[in-house]
């Protein structure tokens, strides 16, 4: 991906004031996202993977300007999306769209699915009502639904079909970037594969760039060109899909990968699982230094004092934030 990035995220931080006084007292600041930087190339899919509370969804919301960073910038084709005028922001919404996780709550049950898909067109004053109806039918065909069903309501569709409708709505204005926030995690495996294939096809056809947010490592690998692994608000490793999965350098990435069992019974039983100590700490009180150190088997004194920077290792474009990342990449057996 040598062409200039379509999206450039620099030192983005999002803190929330936690108003929760009960039961533990003292309001604190939740560091949901902390100094995250990455770029997204044209026609590229960047996977953002991490466990609950790592800040991946907060980041996703900021990418589509549904939330503002506390500091840092997000630039779409060089322009800071959080310094746009009202009109500028509206224009941006044509270019960056989002697909949400839950196909049950993200569609208005009282609107027909045709109206749901056509709504962005109406909001942006695209075409006449007749033209919008035609465009809606086109979109239905594009995402593999019967255009004759535009007058039905969301409850008449299955989870997978509803997620297709959510995708059609995101595509209505012809965006360049689609942020997909856990788009398949509510779906059964057979339907999940359909939606993943659809997203890949649409990327080809429409030259889309995706930021694909998910907690499932295998799903992220399947769809992504590059992958960023997040832990407690930080990107701790980022690189091309094959390198991050084949030669993970951060202990957390290694642990995550070891906990995804293969479907071959012998391989699943032989797989050496790295058991992490305890659970992730609260983002309201992240550990000093390296945020992963409290669960890391490699942690030493330096980890509590100095926060490791995200630096490039032997492979180009493969960055890791660990004091003890091996100098040469470790080959992990598949």
């Amino acid at each position: 991906m040598c062409s200039p990035p379509i999206l450039e995220v620099t030192d983005v931080t999002r803190h929330y004031a936690s108003g929760r006084r009960w039961p533990l007292g003292s309001a604190s600041r939740v560091h949901a996202v902390d100094k995250v930087s990455f770029t997204l190339g044209e026609r590229e899919t960047l996977g953002l993977v991490g466990e609950s509370g790592c800040g991946k969804s907060t980041l996703g919301r900021m990418l589509v300007a549904l939330d503002r960073p506390t500091s840092g910038t997000i630039r779409y084709r060089g322009e800071d999306i959080h310094r746009l005028s009202r009109a500028g922001l509206k224009a941006l919404r044509r270019k960056i769209q989002i697909v949400l996780q839950d196909p049950y709550t993200s569609l208005d049950p009282r609107m027909t699915v045709g109206d749901i898909v056509a709504e962005p067109l109406a909001v942006h004053g695209e075409g006449t009502p007749a033209e919008r109806r035609n465009r809606t039918r086109e979109l239905f065909e594009l995402i593999g639904l019967n255009p004759d069903h535009v007058n039905r309501y969301p409850h008449e569709f299955s989870g997978g079909q509803r997620q297709r409708i959510g995708i059609a709505r995101a595509l209505a204005l012809g965006p360049e970037i689609v942020v997909c926030d856990e788009p398949v995690s509510a779906l059964d495996v057979s339907v999940q594969a359909q939606v993943l294939n659809l997203l890949a096809d649409l990327q080809e056809q429409l030259n889309l760039s995706y930021v694909f947010i998910a907690h499932d490592l295998t799903v992220v690998r399947q769809i992504s060109h590059r992958v960023a692994v997040m832990y407690l608000g930080k990107v701790i490793e980022v690189g091309p899909e094959g390198v991050v999965y084949g030669q993970p350098r951060h202990p957390y990435t290694q642990a995550l990968l070891s906990s995804a069992p293969p479907t071959d019974p012998d391989m699943a039983r032989e797989q050496e699982v790295i058991m992490l100590n305890g659970d992730p700490p609260s983002p309201a009180e992240p550990p000093s230094g390296c945020r992963f150190r409290t669960r890391c088997w490699k942690a030493e004194e330096v980890c509590a004092v100095h926060e490791p920077a995200l630096v490039e290792g032997a492979a180009s474009g493969h960055l890791t934030a660990c004091h003890f990342a091996p100098a040469a990449s470790v080959q992990v057996d598949g």
Partner: peptide
Amino acid sequence: KALLDAVPRADRRAGQLAALPGQP
């Protein structure tokens, strides 16, 4: 067979997943 084929894998990336057509 179809379900097993539709599961994405951590150890390699498939070009296209062998998706099961239709709905449950």
